[in-house]
């Protein structure tokens, strides 16, 4: 490069940029396909959805009219909506801490193994790869009130049997167990990636400093160094947990007595069972708003704590 430049008499030929120069008006045309795709597949559907939340459109109807905030007002007064919102929040509150902590503990324990590390990583990751709907059937059997092995176990050790999917106070925890089971393995993989990025010298420094207790070492080195990973895991797990749908649709259908109505299930019923697309869109807008808010708050709060 310098050789080429210096072979030119200095001052006569103007210094030229390497590569072709393209006028901006032409350059934008090159970007058009990707802009169309971005708008068409990502932004437009959301805009259409938001617009529909202000209409009384019903699936299959030929025309519709704008109704303003009517859909939101009826949501505000709708008991089912509020119950589904609370149930979803309860589910998130159960699933997120459990699956993050279990994922972290698994990652640290498996990472510390001398042999068999691969086996355990694959084993714990398997639930992520299996279809939740198929596995839900297995869980339904496992947690069944009469024939379920879990109940047999409980009665065998002298505890009362539990109707996991029949008792309104037990149905959300039962669904949460399945949620944790399906998410913990994925979180473990994310934490494992974070663990391998921790420099070995930091552990050595802590050993020389006198930290020889594994729990203290975990809190002095491992956990702080996993901060950014933890933040990512908490946010993605929250979003996934908020979107709980398949287990509810397959196992409980919102029952018993609406005790497992969750936001997306109610949304699905409104849109595809009762055909009220306008109302369903309003629920989706609320749903998106909550996820956005949750992620923003978490990012803001955690960002300050995890990036040093």
């Amino acid at each position: 490069m310098t050789m080429v430049l210096s072979s030119h008499p200095i001052g006569r030929t103007p210094r030229r940029r390497l590569g072709a120069e393209i006028a901006p008006s032409i350059a934008y045309w090159f970007a058009t396909p990707s802009i169309i795709l971005l708008v068409g597949t990502m932004l437009l559907p959301i805009v259409v959805m938001i617009a529909m939340s202000f209409t009384d459109y019903e699936l299959g109807a030929l025309d519709f009219s704008f109704v303003g905030f009517d859909n939101y007002v009826s949501l505000w007064g709708d008991k089912t909506f509020w119950r589904s919102l609370l149930n979803t929040a309860y589910y998130v509150a159960l699933v997120v801490p459990a699956s993050v902590i279990i994922g972290l503990v698994l990652a640290v324990m498996v990472n510390g193994l001398k042999r068999g590390r691969r086996f355990y990583q694959i084993a714990f990751f398997l639930p992520v790869t299996s279809t939740l709907i198929a596995m839900a059937t297995v869980w339904k059997y496992l947690l069944h009130g009469k024939i379920g092995p879990v109940n047999h176990l409980l009665t065998a050790i002298g505890l009362p049997g539990m109707e996991f999917f029949g008792d309104p106070s037990l149905v959300m925890p039962a669904l949460a167990i399945i949620g944790v089971w399906s998410l913990a393995g994925f979180n473990m993989v994310l934490f494992t990636a974070g663990l391998t990025a921790i420099p070995q010298e930091l552990y050595e420094a802590s050993a020389v400093d006198g930290i020889d207790n594994p729990i203290e070492r975990f809190f002095t080195v491992t956990l702080p160094m996993l901060g950014p990973t933890t933040m990512f895991v908490i946010i993605t797990t929250s979003i996934t947990a908020f979107k709980v749908f398949d287990t509810v649709a397959v196992l409980t259908r919102g029952g018993p007595q609406g005790a497992s109505d969750v936001l997306l299930y109610v949304n699905y019923l409104e849109g595809f069972q009762y055909m009220r697309i306008g109302l369903a869109s309003a629920i989706t807008v609320v749903f998106l708003g909550i996820i956005l808010l949750l992620s923003l708050v978490q990012a803001k709060v955690l960002e300050r704590k995890v990036h040093y």
Binding site: E201, A205, V208, D212
Partner: peptide, 16 residues
């Protein structure tokens, strides 16, 4: 290491 009463400075400094 704690009982050996030595201290160490690392190439990457290894600060927390």
């Amino acid at each position: 290491p704690k009982a050996r009463d030595v201290s160490m400075v690392f190439q990457s400094y290894a600060l927390y």
